[in-house]
Nucleic acid binder design. Sequence first.
DNA 1: CGTGTTTCTGACCGTTTGGTCAAACTCAAT
DNA 2: ATTGAGTTTGACCAAACGGTCAGAAACACG
Lengths: 205, 205
Amino acid sequence: MNHMRPKTRIQKKNTKAILDAALVVFSQAGFRGATLDQIAKTAGLSKPNLLYYFPSKEAIHVELLSGLMEVWLAPLHGLDANGEPVEEIVKYVLRKLEMARNLSRESRLFANEIIQGAPRIIDQIQGELRDLVMEKSAIIQGWLDAGKITALDPNHLLFSIWATTQHYADFDVQVRGILQPVKDEHFTDAAVFLEQFYRRALTPA
Amino acid sequence: MNHMRPKTRIQKKNTKAILDAALVVFSQAGFRGATLDQIAKTAGLSKPNLLYYFPSKEAIHVELLSGLMEVWLAPLHGLDANGEPVEEIVKYVLRKLEMARNLSRESRLFANEIIQGAPRIIDQIQGELRDLVMEKSAIIQGWLDAGKITALDPNHLLFSIWATTQHYADFDVQVRGILQPVKDEHFTDAAVFLEQFYRRALTPA
DNA sequence: CGTGTTTCTGACCGTTTGGTCAAACTCAAT
DNA sequence: ATTGAGTTTGACCAAACGGTCAGAAACACG
């Protein structure tokens, strides 16, 4: 009944199994494309049992997304106003790229939701995400006012960082289809490229 | 019966209406999320009538995607080996951004397909797309070998261009949620940003 | 006009889907 | 061992889905 906080050890184990399975299925098929049977099977549970722990398919999705938002914003929180500007931004880029590599399913879950109009997280976008972006953009604006980095719109700079890094998670199939890497070596190349790229674009003449 | 080439004026009108409607619905909901009833309603036709022109839901989707690929690759074809390197790339970036603005639904259709594993266009990705990228990457490689642009991995440079421009179509909701533009003025800002950004990153010292 | 073809539709079908429920099973604590 | 709460499931349901089909309506053309 109380799905807020798992109490027993079985509850803890099963809710985790469900959320793990749901992440796999939702990120690959989107909300509508995912079925409860798929999720249940992946989690190793029966469908009714799955609905014993979560009231609905949508509830699982919402739980995943809301849990994801803070993970997603964490790297940006780390952008330090007192650090060395170019280094801070490069560090942020590389940390974001690392997330695209290790949390690619989460990235695709997020991308699916946004592309389809973000019906379930539009509030968080216009709320905490927007607030955080405004705060960090102000820091970047301060840096470029002080001549520490070249003059560039801070908001669009952040967008470009999200776009270039998440691209390696969301468009993974395309990147692999073109580069045909044996393992994951393209991530190393991507890191080198992005570091050079941002360093050159940001470092004042 | 013959769905290859519309003959009569009614066939021409209705197949177009269906494809237009399908683009709207598929791009917003994904393949699985879209329903034939939605498409039919949007096209102003009945569901059986829709299936009179196309044999199945999948056939509509395939038709849309295959028609889209050439439109999507067109700007890259325009990258001229004989042009001024930095200008050529900047021109490509801006043309891509213009596409993200004017063909945002097509971009989202494409993004939906790729994120979910590109089951229907993986061949074209590993085929014509890969070939074109290889060809154009060689041109860029030639430019940087000649010292016309800074040293950067050509493949990843192209990825970054796709990512940063398509971001304004695919993540439109997020961009709007953060910037809250009255109209489309953020596209102008994006164009300014991207031009400055790529110019600085690419122009040799 | 008549007639053959194209276009369109209401009714219908089998399957899949999200979700329910009563009953059975498991488990921890007395 | 009993008990009561927590857990699991097979059977089931209504709605939505992609798709079919016979026949009606609209159209083109002599």
